[in-house]
Write a protein that binds this DNA or RNA. Sequence first.
DNA 1: TCTGGGGTCCTAGGACCC
DNA 2: TCTGGGGTCCTAGGACCC
Length: 423
Amino acid sequence: MFGIIDCNNFYASCERAFNPNLEGKPIVVLSNNDGCVIARSNEAKALGIEMGTPAFQIATYAQSQGLIAFSSNYTLYGDISERVVAAIASMVERYEVYSIDECFVDLSGYEKITADVYEYAWMIQQRIRRWTGIPVSIGVAPTKTLAKVANRRAKKNPLLGGIVVLKHESEIRRALDGFDIGDLWGIGRKYVNKLKALGCEDALHLSQQREEWVRKIMTVQGVRLLKELQGFSCIELELVPDRKKAICCAKSFGEYTDNRETVSEALANYAATCAKKLRKEGSIANMLTVFITTNYYSLVDAQYSATKTIHLDKATNYTPDMIHQALKALGLIWKDGFKFKKVGCIVSGLQPEEFRQAQLFTDIDWEKEQAAMKALDTVNGWYGRDKVKVAAQGYKRDWKMIQERLSPCYTTRWKDLLTVKCK
DNA sequence: TCTGGGGTCCTAGGACCC
DNA sequence: TCTGGGGTCCTAGGACCC
């Protein structure tokens, strides 16, 4: 049996866990630059606030509805996520961290502890709540896809206590009957349109289609989905996370800009971040892509966006090289006179650093570079991010994002630790 | 009339996920 | 005025190899 453990309204719940005053109140967490809503408490959902709603559209809700908004605090959410995983790992042997707020678990063998898999799921749920303050929903079923279906039911119906087990064929059938195909794992908007146009209305109906029919519309991934809905597990638990195949760092500017210096400085920082993430993965990149874009929502500004990929002479994760190449790529696509909204850097063609192709004449550089990067990462690890950096990364940060409602880093910064008063 | 068989690598585009 | 960021997988087509 597969279980999927999904944190309820995760970012909103993280904010709440450290600020009990927020209990029962409508809260939302905003995207970078405080742009749009990316998480909502149940109370905020009840106000009709949709995922992705632009922040300015709900600006008056603070006054009229008592809505409280937060800038996103990924340092906090990342740390809480790790704690949730630690709680899970203390209770199951095999698990797969699927996203920042979801974890698949293998629940086979629960019989040794409890008579009933529901009860075991309940124990996991309680422990996570007690250890982290985060409420979770758990769906259990014979396949990952069905576990997702079960989880959705658990979330939809508060009376179920946040846990749904789909074990017998009749239970699965009942769950799929009337289940919107758009809510299935692996079916997005395009497929919903296609399938509905062909008369496929709910998940039960889809699960009864012929394999060839599904393959024609949704290729082989659709066939896997079909099998999973029928109870044949096709998507295994991935216990060891794969090495990343690409790493991307890109952000919108707090204030749109036509200034090349500002854009270059931002890009240098994103390239440096890519290099740092590469080193953390133990990988090197063979290609680097830079893209810039204006604000495509604007009806009045002139629009321009461009992408440039550079194949590197030698695969690397050396920050100065990365920045140098990124700025070179930017130079090839830069155009004056446009108000840019976003710049970004993607490194791809990644390979493990240990399989690096040595250079015939200049290979001595590699060891020097790695030593320098090790020193850089160590110093910054001790004294804080970017304490030591490349000059091109600048210090003005004119391009920084807007985060007006940022909560403290309760668990990762000494001065942000909560003080508890005892009476 | 008839013109082999079996592969790899790369890229762009489309779909999806959280 | 104001609309996020970071990923994965699959397919088709072109270019190339022996």
